[in-house]
Design a protein around this nucleic acid. Structure first.
Lengths: 189, 189
DNA sequence: GCGTTAAGCGGGGACTGTCTCCGTTTAGTG
DNA sequence: CACTAAACGGAGACAGTCCCCGCTTAACGC
């Protein structure tokens, strides 16, 4: 892509070490883990961290990119296994569970879903938006979902519901319940 | 209540000046406006601010207490004017709009709705929870709302939806729409 | 192997924000 | 007017973000 020269070996090592540590740290302390601390734990100076990842958002995204991509792939898998309406429901459920399980992914998803122009460019945003778009459209043509909602709206609502469940401090039970209620409202009527 | 002696005149002046300035600052910069800056703008030292309000949450709550109480009163007003189902819907709408209009109230409401024991004690939490409980129960006995949801769940979901609308960067239009969808799912079925 | 050089490193430091501590000031009272 | 407890305020400890720039080292041609 934008690879003029390949990375120097030490640079690549540091880059990867940082990602590893960052994923741990975000999981442990939530989205606002200390960046300098991550640098320290990875055995590099903070300068190195900030060169590779100009800001928190960039690091967050890079750290969870694989997870996001798995989610994108999962969408297509579900689309094959289940009827359209259920596929969407199940995918949203897995998305929401992931959001809560991996503290810090919520912030990431949140920013992916914003109107803001800056966030529209992120890889993660595109993957998730693409996945939900496919599922929503399939469900709509199958008549399992009202036709007047946009995919991004579904995503936003699911994210809102996940936040609601998080406030409840509960687990997956609550999410399923809340998503169910939402789904009820989204059926074609 | 817990008033042993009335406040000294200068103390009361500072207290009120702080509230004024805080409301402005939170409205302008969101929930994370600088507290030291608020103190400065109010013409007091930061020590004074922290003595009156031991943490951000306390200041936030005090700054918007009147608004919260108005919301509580509004619930009863609506209960008289409208049939139970609509009263609830309209109140949630006004709540959500307030949440977005007054940047910083979202954080306040969010914490009011958490499982956490610490937050359960806040005045604001109690007012809002009380209001929604009355409206929800009325709607349920009128058969306009499914019986298996808790008031606090309705509140959480509404808050989630408001967050979703906020991400969209939109105004009241979107909120009404999203709340409508939610409401659909909450009808008795 | 060995020298050259630019890519990469890293930590010191500027800056911003939170919150506490304690010496100083002042409102309220007799 | 003097006294005292209440209240003030700002210096400073601490924590976080991010930049800057002199030093180090991997990579490549010889």
């Amino acid at each position: 892509m934008t690879q003029g020269r390949p990375m120097r070996a030490d640079a690549r090592r540091n880059y990867e070490r940082l990602l590893e540590v960052a994923a741990e740290a975000f999981a442990e302390h939530g989205e606002k883990a200390s960046l300098d601390d991550i640098a320290k734990r990875a055995g590099v100076g903070s300068g190195t961290l900030y060169r590779h990842f100009p800001n928190r958002q960039a690091l967050l995204e890079a750290a969870y990119l694989d997870r996001i991509e798995a989610l994108g792939a999962r969408a297509d898998e579900l689309a094959k296994e289940l009827p359209p309406g259920e596929a969407l429901g199940e995918w949203l459920y897995e998305l929401a569970v992931g959001t809560l399980e991996v503290r810090g992914m919520k912030a990431l998803l949140g920013s992916a879903v914003t109107e803001s122009s800056a966030a529209a460019l992120t890889v993660c945003g595109n993957v998730v938006k693409g996945a939900v778009a496919r599922l929503v459209e399939a469900a709509q043509t199958a008549g399992a979902l009202r036709a007047d909602v946009e995919p991004i709206e579904v995503l936003r609502l699911a994210h809102g519901v996940a936040s609601a469940a998080e406030l409840a401090g509960t687990g997956e039970r609550e999410i399923r319940r809340y998503l169910g209620l939402l789904h009820e409202g989204l059926r074609s009527g």
